[in-house]
């Protein structure tokens, strides 16, 4: 079976700075795969390369065996890969419902149609309501997105990402900045939303990472130094070294 997502020796440099240095990674279909690593390791950059926001300098990226290097973000999205952003990236002046509605339109085949009243599209209404219900934002459906609390904006960010029904979902630090209880709710949501899908997630909260993922990759200075199951990562000497100084912390949170 071909991997859901495969990276082969991907490199990215911004001018003289080599941010991603030869990353190879295979995410199996249906797997929940986490990427961890210190600040500035290049995790978000890696997501930007996979989702087509930046072109990679060299290497190959395959989505279900299909080469997606050089495709535009919307083309990659149409092939079934959807991503969220570390900093909420929503349609601020539109209501929560409109935010989600925009995200379901393409997948339901409405393209650029200008001859239909969006209010009469039952499928769109239903899918939008379903997504809002899933993420628990139904009661805030008519609130302008800009007026949501921080945690609700993060939730909306996830809602927009999953609304199109993509098979491969990339989440960039979905719980960053959330309180403990908010994080727990977000994790439940992520587990539910990624059921039957392939998930690639960047996360700083080790508790979340080790609880959620099937496999973990550790990215340090643009290189993947280890990939494995949570147990393997926990026992990996190089990983402990990379988190040197935090070693005690690392042992503690991963225990």
């Amino acid at each position: 079976m071909t991997a859901a997502l495969q990276l082969k020796d991907v490199c990215k440099s911004f001018g003289p700075a080599n941010v991603i240095e030869g990353v190879s990674l295979e995410v199996k279909r249906g797997e929940r795969h986490a990427i961890i690593g210190p600040n500035g390791a290049g995790k978000s950059t890696l997501f930007n390369l996979i989702s087509g926001l930046f072109p990679s300098t060299s290497g190959q990226i395959l989505l279900s065996g299909r080469q997606i290097c050089g495709l535009k973000p919307f083309e990659i999205n149409r092939l079934g890969l959807s991503r969220s952003f570390q900093v909420s990236n929503i349609f601020a002046n539109m209501s929560v419902r409109e935010n989600v509605r925009c995200a379901v339109l393409w997948s339901l085949g409405y393209g650029h149609s200008f001859w239909r009243n969006i209010g009469n599209l039952k499928e769109v209404q239903r899918k939008t309501a379903e997504v809002l219900d899933k993420v628990g934002l139904s009661d805030k459906a008519d609130v302008p997105a800009v007026l949501l609390t921080y945690a609700d904006q993060r939730t909306l960010e996830i809602a927009i990402t999953i609304a199109g029904g993509a098979d491969v979902i990339l989440l960039d630090e979905p719980t960053a900045g959330m309180s403990h209880s908010e994080t727990n709710r977000a994790i439940e949501l992520i587990e539910m939303a990624s059921e039957g899908k392939t998930l690639l997630i960047v996360e700083h909260d080790m508790g979340v990472v080790f609880g959620l993922s099937d496999r973990i990759s550790v990215l340090v200075y643009g290189e993947i130094i280890a990939t494995g199951t949570p147990e393997e990562i926990r026992g990996d000497a190089r990983v402990r070294e990379a988190y040197l100084g935090d070693e005690a912390d690392f042992a503690e949170v991963t225990a």
Binding site: L53, F74, S82, N93, A103, L105, I160, T161
Partner: peptide, 18 residues
């Protein structure tokens, strides 16, 4: 509606398939 989304946030529009 998509036009309004483009006005608000053209970058994100790319990641919902448009």
């Amino acid at each position: 509606k998509l036009a309004q989304a483009v006005r608000d946030n053209p970058e994100r529009v790319q990641f919902v398939g448009y």
